[in-house]
Simulated scan of single mutants.
Amino acid sequence: MMEMTNESSPHEFVLLGFSAQPSLEPVLFGLVSCFYTVAILGNGTIILVSWKDVRLHTPMYFFLANLSFLDISFTTSIVPQLLVNLWGPQKTISYGGCVVQFYVSHWLGATECVLLAVMSYDRYAAICRPLHYTVIMHPQLCIGLALASWLGGLTTSMVGSTLTMLLPLCGNNRIDHFFCEMPLIMQLACVDTSLNEVEMYVASFIFVVLPLGLILVSYGRIAQAVLKIKSREGRRKAFNTCSSHVAVVSLFYGSIIFMYLQPAKSNSHEQGKFIALFYTVVTPMLNPLIYTLRNKDVKNALWHIVSENCCGLEKKQEQI
C-alpha cells in the first residue's frame, strides 16, 4: 500500500480515466490534442480582436472576451494532465495537483454558468430595450456583473471543494475519471457524505438551475419582442444577434446538467466521462467557432487586423 501523508490523505491519486479501453487512448490523445490547440487559438483570437478593434469595445464583446478567457483557463486546468495520462502508463496526479485542479475547475465551471446568464441579460437589454441599452449596460455595470460571475464561482468553489477535500479518504486514491471532480472524490470517502451532497445540490441549484432559469426568462422576453417586429429583416437581425449565444448555452448546459445534477454515487461513470470530455474539450473549442462563423463583426475585425499586419509587413520590407 502506498505511503500516506496521514491516515486519510494519499500522496497521489490514480486517475483511471479511459484505462479500461487502452486501444482508445491513442485516438483520444490525438483528438484531445487537436481540440485543445484549436480551443486555445480560437479563444485567444476572440480576446485579441475584442481588445484590438475599437468597434468591438461593447458590452457583448466584453463578456465574450471574459468567456473566452474562462474557456482557455478551464480547459487548461484539465487537459494537460489528461494528455500526460493518455500518453504514458502513469495515470497518477499528485495530491496537491488534484487539489488545485479540483478548486480551479469547480471555480471556472460555476463562473461560466453565471457568465452565460449575464450574457443573456445583455442580449435581452439590447433587443427589448434598445433605446436604453447604453444607459442600462454602462461600463460600471458590465465590470460589476463580470466580477460577480468570477467571485460567485470562486465562493462556491471554496465552500464545496473545501468541504469535499476535508473528507477522510482512509487511503482510497483511485478516481474513476480523467480529472479530480467533486462527486468522484466524495465516492472515495469512508464516512457519511450526506452533508456534502446537500451542499452540492444547493450549489447546483444556485449556480446551474437559477442561471438557466434566468436565461430562459430572458429569451422568452426576447422571443416576444422579436415576434412583434413586423419586418422580416428586423426579425432576422434580432435572431442573428442571439443565435450564437443560444448555441453556446445549449452546448454547455446540455452536458453540464447531466454531470452535476446526478447522484454523487451514480454508476454511469463511463457515459459521464465522455460527456465530461465533451464540455471540457469540445465546447471550449466550438465556442469561438460559433461566434466567429456566425458574427460579421468578429470576422470583419479579424480581417481588419490581418490586413493591417500584412500592410505593415509590406511597408517594412519596402523600407529595407
Rank of each mutant, 00 (worst) to 15 (best):
E314Q: 10
V249W: 03
Y121D: 07
C34P: 00
Y133H: 14
D176A: 08
L48W: 13
T193N: 07
H245L: 15
V38F: 11
Y133S: 10
Q101Y: 04
C311M: 11
A39M: 03
H138Y: 08
Y121L: 13
D176I: 04
W107C: 05
Q90K: 11
Q81G: 02
F239C: 10
W150L: 10
I143L: 14
S94N: 10
W150P: 00
C113G: 15
C311N: 13
V298P: 06
I305Q: 13
E3M: 07
P211C: 03
T155G: 07
I72G: 05
Y36K: 01
Y103D: 01
G30Q: 08
G144Y: 05
F207T: 12
L86R: 07
N172G: 04
M200A: 13
L313S: 15
S77H: 08
F62T: 14
W303P: 00
M1I: 04
P139R: 12
L289R: 04
T111F: 02
Q90N: 14
G97S: 09
L151T: 13
H132Y: 05
L64V: 06
V84H: 13
I127E: 10
Q319R: 13
L163I: 02
N196D: 04
S149D: 08
G109P: 03
T156F: 15
S157A: 15
R174D: 11
G144P: 06
N240V: 05
M165V: 12
H269Y: 13
S255W: 02
S161P: 07
G152H: 08
Q262S: 11
L188D: 10
G97W: 11
T75A: 06
L184I: 11
L151N: 00
T193G: 03
G160N: 12
S266V: 04
N300G: 00
K316Q: 14
V99T: 11
C34H: 01
Y219L: 02
S231T: 15
F258N: 03
N43D: 02
P80C: 07
G234H: 09
E3T: 13
S77I: 04
R123H: 08
L212E: 05
Q262H: 06
Y253P: 07
L67W: 02
Y36P: 01
L286T: 07
